[in-house]
Nucleic acid binder design. Structure first.
Lengths: 177, 177
DNA sequence: CATATACTGTACGCTATGTCCAGTAATGCA
DNA sequence: TGCATTACTGGACATAGCGTACAGTATATG
């Protein structure tokens, strides 16, 4: 049943309501309410269920490459797979649903930010990254453009974006020689 | 009447419906529909009406200062005044309402991006900004963290954010000496 | 066999949207 | 002065989605 929920969560773009979810899962509406408080909650659980394995950071030669790879993979995930549309819908839902908002922060954003911060800290140890940076702010600057384009779609989410972000940001991150 | 619409647009946080808008304007629901296609459209027009004058870029000594000031002013606008909450709601609405989405891009985002691009171009002329940059990508990286925090509120929108963005990004923007 | 648990399906109240229509008030034109 | 146009009223209506309630069925567990 959790499987069914997850599947429909990803298939039904992001605007799926309780009715659609219940129907798609072959289950009564009442039953859905027994386990989740809202449609967004089901979709959120489906999203997290299916993207657990996309959190870990890659192993790359240099910190710069690792960060770039991480952004590229996030872009591909959001652009090419159902979780992208789902994340967009859930972000919209989070404006009026605080529970979803907190869950998004804690279960989606935070682990990925932590992975980036870990890469940065490792970079400092290796002497590739400047010491004394505000890691949280750096993580914001690195990730934000991706979510920005996800939400507004004023520019397409291309693979190039990752390189562009790194081109602008890396000089401010790299250890000065 | 446009005044009334604008006022209530800013007062009613962002989740105002047609009913609330009509009541607040002292006008029949039917009348609202005569002039706008949806609640979001009214709110959007109210938002744009009241923030026209916040688009222009400041005159500062250096390009770095000008960009920093611009970001600081945008942060203050979003954090301290009704347009912030309104923008948040409209962004959420834009996910399901393409008309609102395009209007947000063209009437809100684009002019501000253009102002930033103008500052960058001017900076190149003055020799303060590296030539050959992708201005659009740079504008994305500069602005995105603000909207990112507006939407997710995982971190507060503080005045410091502006300085943090500039600290990370400026080395990648500045002309290499 | 008895009981607890999970699920069904329908019905209900509620809110909000968007449309329709008959009637009223004000404006402008001949 | 008479007439037409335009803007607004307010109530009624259909539609849709949410969340809850309830009586009944199936399954498993002791």
């Amino acid at each position: 049943m959790l499987d069914a929920a997850a599947e429909l969560a990803l298939e039904g773009a992001g605007g799926a309501g309780i009715d659609a979810i219940a129907a798609r899962a072959g289950v009564s509406r009442t039953t859905v309410y027994k386990w989740w408080p809202s449609a967004a909650a089901v979709l959120l659980e489906g999203l997290l269920e299916r993207t657990h394995d996309t959190i870990e950071s890659p192993v790359s030669a240099t910190t710069r490459e690792a960060l770039g790879d991480y952004l590229t993979r996030l872009i591909a995930l959001i652009r090419d797979t159902p979780p992208g549309a789902l994340l967009r819908g859930l972000t919209a839902a989070s404006v009026t649903d605080q529970v979803v908002g907190h869950a998004l922060i804690n279960e989606w954003l935070a682990p990925r930010r932590a992975a980036a911060v870990h890469l940065l800290a490792e970079g400092v140890r290796r002497g590739e990254v400047r010491a004394g940076l505000d890691y949280d702010a750096v993580a914001d600057v690195l990730f934000a453009p991706i979510y920005y384009r996800l939400m507004y779609a004023h520019q397409p989410l291309t693979d190039r974006l990752s390189a562009e972000i790194m081109a602008v940001c890396w000089p401010g991150i790299a250890a000065s020689e």
